[in-house]
């Protein structure tokens, strides 16, 4: 069974954190951060806020964050929703440059997350 958010392409050089269904709700933000950092090789990631939210009616977490990619000065923002249903983690993630794109597409992303079915 797959237990990473992102595919583990190089287990020895860039291992991905493994999901544990015992994680408590606030810890999903930590797990997401570790996964997102590893996938994008980030050194700069800041959690802005993690707060309760729903995903397909299930209790979950909304994570707002800010980051920059290596060798790129552009500030980027992201918003993810995470929920654990029957021991499985579901993640919806939207990220974009802070300049113009994040704000202009956030309502659409939120709409998709609100109506997501699985």
């Amino acid at each position: 069974m797959v237990s990473n958010i992102y595919r583990e392409r190089d287990k020895k050089r860039n291992p991905m954190p493994k999901f544990d269904s015992g994680l408590l709700l606030p810890e999903l933000a930590d797990f997401f951060e570790k996964s997102f950092r590893a996938q994008n090789q980030l050194s700069d990631y800041t959690l802005i806020e993690s707060s309760p939210a729903t995903l397909n009616g299930a209790k979950g977490l909304r994570v707002r964050y800010r980051y920059t990619l290596p060798n790129d000065e552009l500030t980027r923002l992201g918003e993810a929703r995470l929920a654990v249903v029957k021991g499985k983690l579901y993640v919806a993630n939207f990220y974009a440059p802070k300049l113009h794109y994040f704000d202009s597409h956030l309502p659409e992303a939120n709409n998709i997350m609100d109506t997501l079915k699985f």
């Binding site: 408590l24 709700l25 606030p26 933000a29 959690l47 806020e49 993690s50 707060s51 309760p52 209790k59």
Partner: peptide, 10 residues
């Protein structure tokens, strides 16, 4: 703190 709402829910 930035996760107080999530902790309260827990």
């Amino acid at each position: 703190s930035n996760d107080s709402a999530a902790i309260k829910m827990l």
